[in-house]
């Protein structure tokens, strides 16, 4: 075998070209993502009000944050919203996927219909559901006009219930997406497995519960990841639907942060709450990334 020596400039290009190509995006990410995260982290230790200043106050903003009732309402709401939204979207999505997987007619059309809400922005979803749930405009008025005068559905304006309207709109928007993910997974299941289970005497619900859904584990986890981070950073849906109200009863950490940092001149407090959200997202995503990356290295 003969080794041909390459021209010197070729080695130079091969060495530097990939770096040059990647450099702009690397720089952008470094500055605008990690740089601003670091800046935000720094601001959370300052007494910044309307504008950033660098008067260091240590952990005072975090102390104020943890002492704030409104913050705990937001965290509590995030917990309710996260659990119900993820659980609800998952259940509705899986059920839709299973029903669509029964080799029915018009599957393509139905799939598109269910997936369509995902094409809308959360702002549109929030506004539309806001009208529907508004007692003076939507469902309640409709029922009253029809003569059901006793009908009452005021969750949108009820401080104890307002968070659930966000859950409803969130599930409506995302369950089609969950359905699409699971449908793709279900399509990957060999038909003869179902036949074998039928001959083995299992009923259809049992086949799904014991054989098919357990095989969907990877899809389940990917979906969970995607929904979890949607839930944690939910902002636009709340703003469009309830604006965090009535009062601050339907605040989520993201809206809390926005309010503090940009409308109430509490930038330091807002920065501290943003850091808390970053920590929460990391707590969800990092273990997932770790397990995924480790797996791909083993395979």
């Amino acid at each position: 075998m003969s080794v041909t020596s390459r021209p010197a400039h070729y080695g130079f290009a091969e060495h530097w070209l990939p770096r040059l190509v990647l450099a702009p995006s690397f720089l952008l990410v470094l500055v605008f993502l990690y740089g601003f995260i670091a800046w935000n982290g720094a601001l959370s230790f300052t007494a910044s009000r309307l504008l950033p200043n660098y008067e260091w106050v240590g952990l005072a903003q975090y102390e104020a944050l943890f002492a704030s009732e409104r913050w705990w309402v937001a965290v509590h709401n995030l917990f309710i919203f996260g659990v119900l939204f993820i659980g609800g979207a998952m259940v509705v999505g899986i059920v839709l996927a299973i029903l669509l997987d029964q080799k029915i007619r018009l599957e393509g059309a139905l799939r598109t219909i269910y997936l369509y809400p995902l094409a809308l922005s959360f702002i549109v979803t929030g506004t539309a559901w806001g009208w529907m749930l508004n007692p003076g405009l939507g469902l309640e008025k409709l029922m009253h006009d029809w003569g059901y005068a006793g009908f009452s559905f005021d969750w949108l304006v009820n401080p104890d219930r307002s968070i659930y309207t966000i859950v409803i709109a969130g599930i409506w928007q995302s369950s089609g997406f969950v359905m699409a993910l699971f449908l793709a997974g279900l399509r990957g299941i060999d038909d003869s497995i179902i036949k074998a289970a039928q001959i083995d005497g299992a009923s259809l619900p049992r086949i799904y519960w014991r054989i098919i859904l357990p095989a969907m584990r990877p899809v389940f986890f990917s979906t969970l990841m995607i929904l979890a981070h949607i839930a944690i950073k939910s902002f636009d849906l709340v703003m469009a639907l309830t604006g965090g109200g009535p009062g601050f009863s339907s605040d989520l950490p993201a809206t809390f942060m926005y309010q503090m940092a940009f409308t109430r001149g509490q930038m330091g407090l807002g920065a501290a709450s943003a850091m808390m959200m970053l920590v929460t997202v990391s707590a969800v995503v990092v273990p997932y990334l770790y397990s995924e990356l480790r797996r791909s290295r083993h395979v």
Binding site: D190, K195, A196, A197, I199, D200, I211
Partner: peptide, 29 residues
Amino acid sequence: APKDRDIAMVFQSYALYPTMNVRQNIAFG
């Protein structure tokens, strides 16, 4: 119904239940 016909079938793709081990595969039926 297939399950009441007193038959057993072996498939080209084997059709083993992917999340169960061999013992559970045999035991399922």
